[in-house]
Design a protein around this nucleic acid. Structure first.
Lengths: 249, 249
DNA sequence: AAGGAGATTTAGCCGCGGCTAAATCGTAAA
DNA sequence: TTTACGATTTAGCCGCGGCTAAATCTCCTT
């Protein structure tokens, strides 16, 4: 019998595959995207993909891309739960600033026991989203993804509510936080510059021009009234594809 | 230039060397003791000792035993600080039971950033001892060791105060906690059985007979009145040897 | 249909940090 | 003094998870 529990590296790859498929509305990814995401070489990614497939955590045939199996996705969601619970705890209880919690959680997530996970969850009152607005998977591996879209694709003239901000980039986080572009904020989309031009928005009474990268990192919910239609359930085994979040963490 | 920061394995070995020398009033240890402490083979211990010596973290000549250099001890004390701060935090803020905090902290200590260390330290109000009574080194690598002795060597007829309990063994911790033998408790030593016989003690109004192992795991402070003579300063570079704690964590 | 660029895979290397087996040392007992 | 045993060291192996270089495949363009 091979090791029952995936190694830290394996967990990192599973998390990455999850991000690159479920996070971007794609079915499968390739080693190149994985390698870039993790900062490794393509060859390393291919090797690990082969190993994960042998272990039954991913499906992969040569040149056909990778996807997670049910058990692989389950592992990824467990790691993601650890990550987002830690982010929330560090932010709420220890005052770690917004833009730093991701890096801290990345190092701590693999050392978190089930028992501690439960204690943190309880201490926080069973939170459903992390400080960046990303949903926290349940212990059973169910993740509730709000029906959102990137701010970048929002039609000018619309007023929207920010639900989440991708948390990978500290500098970007600091920048958008300064603007008040945090989950819950209301934004009026004014107009879009030509081609890759800036997106003009208004927050409260101030206008800003956002670059492409920033506009894509922000998830928004259209309208602001009806809460019940704002979420859908997404779980392992779901057949009908639902709109998934762009925001990572 | 070699890696600036010791690997997790190296840190574990440094911590072990610290325990086996400073923890037991010995000057040096051998690979055998190290190997047993960590659960590795003697050969592995010898290898690592050689590497630590090359890195300037330990001193070692063949067949002469190992000791930490100043910088090695500094690293060990940093890890120990992480460990004991985490123990305290987990116990105080997340309700992790006494006998489990050691194992949790062992996994988390290597993933703790300096920033988080400071935040935890501040959140706890800069504690000086962990839940088992062991002193927490300062950020500067100074550890204040109370002048204590094992309960096992305490003369019958004496009344002493428990200062610390070795935290490695969960079963033992549960046992002594049940008896009320926690830091701060007052114990009257009644008599010692012959040879390896039990140590009879009284806590409050109840009498107990303790085995050798338990009696050695408990550190006590003789008398209970004068606090100023109860501690001494021990720091890197101290020449005069001071009585050091038996309790580990 | 042919060519070529980029993605993917394979082959083979490396350091880390475990391991066992075998050689060597040092000491305490005969 | 010799011997034997335990502690230490050396030699050499392994899996993990990175890497580079080279081979191969896919697909898009010409």
């Amino acid at each position: 019998m091979t090791d029952l529990v995936p190694s830290q590296s394996e967990q990192d790859y599973l998390k990455a595959i999850y991000h690159l498929t479920y996070g971007e509305a794609k079915e499968r990814t390739g080693p190149a995207a994985l390698a870039e995401w993790l900062g490794f070489s393509c060859a390393s990614a291919t090797n690990m993909v082969k190993k994960l497939t042998e272990r039954g955590l991913a499906t992969h045939s040569p040149y056909q891309g990778v996807a997670l199996t049910e058990t692989g996705e389950k592992v990824a969601l467990e790691v993601l739960r650890h990550h987002r619970l830690l982010e929330t705890y560090l932010s709420e209880r220890l005052g770690v600033p917004w833009e730093k919690v991701h890096a801290e959680a990345d190092r701590l997530e693999h050392a978190l026991s089930e028992d501690l996970e439960d204690r943190i969850d309880a201490a926080l009152g069973h939170p459903t989203t992390d400080p960046h607005g990303a949903p926290i998977p349940t212990k059973e591996g169910i993740i509730v993804a709000p029906a959102t879209q990137p701010l970048a694709t929002t039609l000018p003239g619309t007023t929207v509510t920010v639900t989440a901000v991708a948390d990978e980039n500290p500098a970007l986080l600091t920048y958008v936080a300064d603007l008040g572009l945090v989950p819950g904020a209301t934004v009026e989309v004014l107009r879009k510059g030509p081609f890759d031009g800036p997106l003009h928005i208004r927050i409260a009474t101030t206008e800003y021009a956002l670059g492409e990268k920033v506009a894509w990192a922000i998830s928004v919910m259209v309208g602001s009234s009806d809460a019940s239609t704002g979420v859908e359930h997404e779980s392992r085994g779901t057949h009908g594809k639902v709109k998934r979040m762009k925001a990572e963490s």
